[in-house]
Simulated scan of single mutants.
Amino acid sequence: MKHFTAYIDEAGDEGLGKLASGSIGGQSRWFVLGACIVNHDGDLKLPAWKDAIIARFPNKQRRDLHFRDLKHDQKVVVSQEIAKLPIGACVVMSHKATLIGTKYEAIYKRKGHLYNYLLRWMLERITFILERESLPEPACLKIVFSRRASTDYQKMKDYLYLIKNEREMFTPIRRIRWNVLNIEDIVVENHSKWAGLQIADCITSAYFSAVEPNIYGNYEPTYATLLKEKLLTTNGVSLNWGLTPVPSLGGCRADDRQYAFLQSHR
């Protein structure tokens, strides 16, 4: 059996109350989940890989990576270094503006609902690709989440069991490969103590920066573009596999710059 671990982090927030607009503050317009995926050998090497990245910044006081605390030049270097690592990445991003004023708004205003829904999309893709790439051997996936005070992890597991037991009111287009994922193997750890979570933070934040406007209305796709080759693919295409906008590219109401960035992953 081939063993894999997916370290998962998020960027932005789930709030749908008042979305940020230009220099006017508010909740993030996008909510992004990102994963760093490694095989067993890679998992053992993650601490050394993280230390080697931090060694690029000899004056850095803290010994953990937190993407938002880095300067632009440092973010570029971190992205370049992660791009060299034998890892996989999977990113799912929701443009929350598409939920405002719809019949789904009340549902996704509920605590944890948007997070769990994006997680479902992510696990459908990761487990499918790991199952395929591991053949003829079976694959086994362990999930490690970065701890969030606002997340009820038991409700998350309950939601996954509901999916697994086929108790949903609709038939999904894709499915999670339950032969790859054991729900009870899901664990939650502190970001500062796990190298894999720190790498996942950098991947997630890089893609968040590519679509979330800053106070000037600008995006920074440089970091994500450097990480593009790490995304999971099918037939050489990462869009809707390693990078998935929710709704789809045609319905996510991306502006021209965001659309060009997403389109580049076809």
Rank of each mutant, 00 (worst) to 15 (best):
I8L: 03
I8V: 14
L16R: 01
K18C: 08
K18S: 12
S21P: 06
S23E: 07
S23V: 09
G25I: 00
G25P: 05
R29F: 03
H40A: 14
L46H: 02
A48D: 07
R56W: 06
R56T: 02
P58W: 10
R62M: 09
D64C: 08
H66T: 03
H66L: 04
F67R: 02
D69F: 04
K75A: 09
Q80H: 02
P86K: 06
M93W: 08
S94E: 11
K103P: 05
Y104T: 04
A106N: 12
R120Q: 12
R120Y: 12
R120H: 12
E124C: 12
E124T: 08
R125I: 05
R132S: 10
L135I: 07
P138M: 07
A139S: 13
R148C: 00
D152W: 07
M156A: 01
L162W: 10
E168H: 05
M169Y: 09
F170R: 11
L181Y: 03
N182V: 09
D185R: 13
I186Y: 05
E189K: 15
N190K: 15
A200S: 14
I203F: 03
I203K: 04
E212R: 02
G217K: 06
T222E: 15
Y223R: 15
Y223L: 05
L227K: 02
K228R: 15
W241L: 11
W241E: 13
L243C: 06
T244A: 07
G251Q: 05
Q258K: 11
A260H: 13
H265M: 14
R266M: 10
